[in-house]
Design a protein around this nucleic acid. Structure first.
Lengths: 116, 116
DNA sequence: CGGAATCCAAAGGGATACTG
DNA sequence: CAGTATCCCTTTGGATTCCG
């Protein structure tokens, strides 16, 4: 793909994070949400196909695992793998960026406000 | 897009980071690359249209500024704004993730009950 | 409940040629 | 050099319906 002048390969990371809903989806996974239906409701206008696509992709990339509980009301859980959990600092940084936006570039006042 | 479910709004961040080349492009900007032609060469197979589109989008979002030097060999520089520079921790985190991939994929006694 | 299967619209990118 | 202008195609994502 792109060049190789850089160490490791941010390209692999890009492959993981790409996609319209991926960042939002991961954020919910980090918040402990594990079930398909719940994720779907939280990402609201997302279509089931898209959500499935994203989850499968993350599964292939080793970011989440899928566990099926064949109980009567069928139920499935998605959990972050070790590799996925190592992405957390990234989301922390994102949260901090958002907070820094809220406080405003030239604003000195404390504006605590909203949590993520 | 998604919407109101969360405060602060990581959505705005998503709007900035989305797009096939955005992360790679920003990385080069953080590395001090400022000129169109150089960026183009570094992102190699990218088309001029795509690169322009991305840069314009980042400009609209207040992440980069565009400065035209109407000297004879026309030349333009793109620089990160204050808002853009505040994204740096994110890229640092990305770099660390990549490094963690390189160093320790072996200490994963993973499990991953994948079945796809 | 958690998808799979279709079908489809549209946005996003790419290739190329040309210009201020 | 740093784009613009086109044209076109591939990929994504969405709506819907049905299945285990």
């Amino acid at each position: 793909m792109s060049e190789q002048t850089c160490p490791g390969s941010i390209e692999r990371l890009v492959e993981i994070l790409e996609g319209k809903w991926t960042l939002l989806l991961l954020r919910h996974l980090f918040n402990g949400v594990t079930r398909f239906g719940v994720l779907r409701r939280m990402l609201h206008p997302i279509s089931p196909k898209t959500l499935t696509d994203r989850l499968r992709l993350l599964e292939e990339r080793g970011i989440v695992t899928r566990t099926i509980y064949s109980e009567v009301p069928l139920h499935v859980e998605y959990q972050l793998t070790e590799r996925g959990r190592r992405l957390e600092p990234l989301f922390v940084a994102m949260g901090e960026w958002v907070r820094s936006e809220d406080s405003g570039p030239e604003n000195e006042l404390i504006s605590t406000s909203l949590s993520s």
